[in-house]
Amino acid sequence: MLRVQSLSSYYGNIQALRGISIHVGYGEIVTLLGANGAGKTTLLNSICGLITSRKGNIFFKDQDIINLSAEKIVRLGISQVSEGRQLFGELSVLDNLMLGSYLHRRNGKKQMQKKLENVFNIFPILKERQKQPAGTLSGGEQQMLAIGRALMAEPELLLLDEPSMGLAPKIVNEIFEIIKRLRDEQGTTILLVEQNVRVALKIADRGYVLETGRAVLEGTTEELLENKEVKRAYLGKGYKEIWE
């Protein structure tokens, strides 16, 4: 579905991506792992057109989308839930959700209602709170709203940036359960950036480990879990005893 080839991106003169190649197949959950500054978020932002890429290719369903406007990329079926959620705190939950389908606003009310029902189905709590300002929601609910808003654009590929950030472990598990269901039940393909390697590898099919803008490991979840470097750097010694 998505093919990124030898992508290089810069922030000013600082090279953030050094020729990175990844792919995401239909219906896969793929995770990008790596320390801060490894280039994970840059890669997501480059895919959805928020950062200009200097070199390389990005194909989405065989169409070259490199350096298309973010708006066009959303229309093609890629939505991103960025780090820190970026909600409009003053606006109601409902309005936040409606903004998510802004690009599809000409589709008519019925269509909109159907999408909304779908999101409420996935996140019943949002239905309960639809009139509340988004800023009054708990962290977990805000994350659900951010994902819900992205789903309003009916993406085929959902890019998630640190969905676990700032959330209690119990809520993290809940959110990841939902992410997995999005794929299993709605068929949404997911590219996931996550610092919490344990939960990410629990739901992902495959992953890439990034380091200073390069991919230094790739493989199935099982392969990554078996790799001693991943264990040392991201899981900690003896993680099994503690976590499983």
Partner: peptide
């Protein structure tokens, strides 16, 4: 070719390091 490119780059990165 996509898979080969990804894996080749990982291999070269790691071998170099």
């Amino acid at each position: 070719r996509q898979i080969q490119l990804e894996r080749l780059q990982v291999t070269v990165n790691r071998a170099y390091r």
